[in-house]
Design a protein around this nucleic acid. Structure first.
Lengths: 360, 360
DNA sequence: CTGAAAGCGCTAACAC
DNA sequence: GTGTTAGCGCTTTCAG
């Protein structure tokens, strides 16, 4: 219809058959060339390569996957992409999988605590993914399907961010340690009446961080009362509410360990408005390592979790699992990988000036 | 080897052939049932459905794609997933595509200004994606491939966030309008000496916002000097530097339109430290609508861009384009969709108290 | 070194 | 209503 019609021949991808005909050989020989098999005469190979170049031929990944029973594609299941954590993890996943030569079929759950995941699993399997990356944090009962569905899974699966579970390959941060480190840092700075604003406690990670807080206090001979802890939902606005409530419940609090940086951000703002001097009157420490948290009225001390690395590591693991399961089928070799948090000291927790602030 | 061996039969997905044998019919009939064709006897259908249920059969999307020359899969190309904007757009994309019955093959470019995208395009095509969503903002020369590669593309493609281009389907925000709205709001609040901290000016969006700023000032009879504008790179830290520079270049500035909320965040913090009263001494307005920006020492007025909606809209468009191109091949019907920004007034720009602040 | 035949799992087009 | 044949684009035998 338009002048572009002349290019229509090019806009259909050529098949191996067409390449073979153009080169005057069988499809077999072309297949050998594109798979870098040695047993092709140099001349034939060159000829075929020339034709491939001219025609812009690219083998169909689909047809290959079908015949080879292997797609070099990973299923990635995530949730809450609008949050910083999940999207940075995905960032790591895309890069590492690209690097290792795998494509990604992406699914996002509508909620963190989606329980009925059978259709989703079926869908991934119908696309012949070689393995699955379950990048959804453990929330509520959203691991209950493990008992029913997992035994039937014909491919490896790697879980991110969940509690230890025999027989599974899991990659998580040490959230308990994060809680301990945060609290110990505050103790070390001379704070003694340390409150906690937890993330939502149906999240495994929140519970771990809270347990770390308790553990550190107990180790210092301080009792961790339930009234010294309130609960937010990760958002800044929930942080505001949780902080106000905590101020009521624990009026002589002199420091607070906040479950994430977003909520900690509100704490700093509210404190600022109420003329609570940070870090003198109140020490504050968060978790995450968001770059913005360095730019608050008082720069925020935080426990850094490298979500990008989490994603990269997960891809490495699932690819290895896939490759192991191809070679010696049955040799399952599950493992649990725990990534360590890191303390990033900024002003909000620095009551003693003996410590130098770490890098901004 | 282990006790799980007994379940090995289940862990291999059954084929249509196996279903057919188990039901005592031909594969054809099974195919008819799973595709909801009418011409199957009720009894046969029931029998087959029972077998499908028992065996846990799920048709292979791969084999279907191959024979039907249609995969119900979209290629999504993104960049900078660790940033808020791209990840929220992707969030919209995953939900809308799930809703419309399409799967997603995800690729992330290593940099925004990646120029050589031919291998990537080839890769997507080799997976037989039905259409492509190019969710990479226009930066530097990263659209130069359009001339060479696009004519050969055998499938529809929809672009997000780029300037108008005849023959392409594009979905963008009206960034010029965003700049105008922001600046007009400041003018309306009585500010007259309005500076601008732009995003990186190799980004099309940054240039548009800046042009909107100029346009609004000119319309008010005010000259927009180049020295009244500095440039950041979207990050909070760059915002700090850009603001300090701007304070030097434009000492009697009474308001500033900042290219995004992250940078505006630093501006508010620096101002706070330097005892510049916001909004009295300095009006501040950002762009994005990050939820955290409501929790700064002075809540930030901002121009909201609904990135989620952008993603949803893009999926709708590409799916329609795919379906049109299947029906009447050739009927291309390109369109450009411009989404409007919205003004969200908070304290940072509210010098006149005549306006009521909008919702938080 | 190269080609012919078979088949991955499915569906379109025809028979019966 | 149902089965048969052919084939999507490729690779894996196995001949020659």
């Amino acid at each position: 219809m338009t002048g572009r019609d002349r290019t229509l021949n090019f806009s259909k991808r050529p098949t191996i058959k067409e390449v073979a005909q153009a080169a005057g050989v069988s499809t077999q020989t072309v297949s050998r060339v594109i798979n870098d098999r040695p047993d092709v005469a140099g001349e034939t190979r060159e000829k075929i390569n020339r034709v491939i170049e001219e025609l812009g031929y690219q083998p169909s990944a689909l047809a290959r996957s079908l015949i080879q029973q292997r797609s070099y594609t990973l299923g990635v299941v995530t949730a809450g992409l609008k949050h910083m954590g999940p999207s940075r993890t995905l960032n790591g996943i895309t890069f590492q999988s690209e690097k290792m030569g795998y494509s990604l079929l992406l699914k996002e759950l509508p909620r963190f605590d989606t329980e009925n995941i059978k259709p989703l699993l079926q869908n991934l399997l119908s696309h012949h993914v070689d393995g699955i990356l379950w990048a959804v944090p453990q929330v509520g009962d959203n691991r209950s399907w493990l008992n029913d569905e997992l035994p039937d899974l014909p491919i490896p699966i790697v879980f991110l961010t969940m509690e230890n579970h025999p027989g599974l390959t899991i990659i998580s941060f040490d959230n308990f340690l994060a809680g301990r480190m945060a609290t110990e840092h505050l103790l070390q700075q001379g704070y003694r009446r340390i409150g906690h604003i937890a993330g939502p406690l149906d999240w495994w990670e929140s519970r771990q961080r809270k347990a770390g807080w308790k553990s550190a206090l107990n180790a210092a001979g301080i009792e961790a009362l339930e009234s010294h802890c309130t609960e937010g939902n990760w958002s800044s606005s929930s942080g505001e509410a949780a902080f106000k409530q905590l101020l009521n419940q624990y009026p002589d609090m002199d420091a607070v360990f906040v479950g994430n940086d977003q909520m900690a951000m509100s704490v700093i703002q509210i404190a600022c408005k109420n003329n609570i001097d940070i870090p003198r009157d109140l020490g504050v420490i968060g978790v995450d390592g968001l770059s913005e948290s360095a730019y608050l009225s008082t720069p925020l001390t935080t426990i850094v979790l490298d979500q990008y690395l989490l994603g990269c590591t997960a891809v490495e693991e699932i690819v290895h699992a896939v490759e192991r399961s191809r070679e010696h089928s049955g040799h399952e070799n599950q493992r649990t990988i725990i990534l360590s948090p890191e303390l990033l000291v900024r002003e909000s927790s620095l009551r003693l000036r003996t410590l130098e602030p770490a890098s901004p």
